[in-house]
Design a protein around this nucleic acid. Sequence first.
DNA 1: TAAAAATAGTTACCTAGGTAACTATTTTGC
DNA 2: GCAAAATAGTTACCTAGGTAACTATTTTTA
Lengths: 134, 134
Amino acid sequence: MVKNQDIIHQLNQKVRYINKHLNDCLKNHGLYNAQWSIIYYLYKNGAKTQTEITQYFHVEAPTVTRTLKRMEANGWISRTQGQDKRARLIQLTDSAKEKYFDIEKSVASHEEKMLEQLSEEEKNVFYQLIQKLV
Amino acid sequence: MVKNQDIIHQLNQKVRYINKHLNDCLKNHGLYNAQWSIIYYLYKNGAKTQTEITQYFHVEAPTVTRTLKRMEANGWISRTQGQDKRARLIQLTDSAKEKYFDIEKSVASHEEKMLEQLSEEEKNVFYQLIQKLV
DNA sequence: TAAAAATAGTTACCTAGGTAACTATTTTGC
DNA sequence: GCAAAATAGTTACCTAGGTAACTATTTTTA
């Protein structure tokens, strides 16, 4: 019978490894893992406030502030004031949208390698089990 | 059919959430996730060099140097020079060994919560699938 | 055996997570 | 309607991941 601690431990080991190598592949595009995740989220879901991003990623506000500032400085996003003057609306720049497919392509090829040992059926089962976590 | 990118994305989402809450529970013992992982590893496998720790966790050398220095400063480990004068042998202190079971107990209770939606059979399947990653 | 190459670890600096304490708005409630 | 409370975001500082460039040993090899 497999132990809870071994599951969590192996999960961390693999995710650390996957992200390390994902960063290698993103480096060619001048991006980091966290920044790519935000681009992916905004591309699929349109403009969002910082709070929405914070809640979606289960990450604290200062983390998002920092990463978005870097992304703004590097021309990936714009941050405009919303109707609520406290809030900032985050949008992908046209330049980011143009680059999106190229980046997605190399990320997809990396992700395929990471999952190549799983059959389609196993991927489905795996995904269902991940959803049951927490 | 589930997409590779969704699997990796959800994996990251869940692991980020699990570790965030694991840190909450470790805070009571004056520990962080990475430090607890090293204690766990040394407790199960005995004294190791920094290189062995680096290789086991798929982490770069400077990361390990830093974390071990903090752990030494806080009395969790000792770092002694090996026969190879370049190498350092890392050992748990007696104090760390004494505290081990208490910490493991609260970590175990946290991990159980994270996995409570999975049956024993599902946990086995999940563990097998995790092993197939990378 | 002496020079070159490899290995173990460190230092300096990058991004990404966290908490605590703060400002500036908006919402609530008396 | 004004004071209190809640909310959105920022700043300062903590740990944890990374790379590049370095020192000090050990191993290889010519």
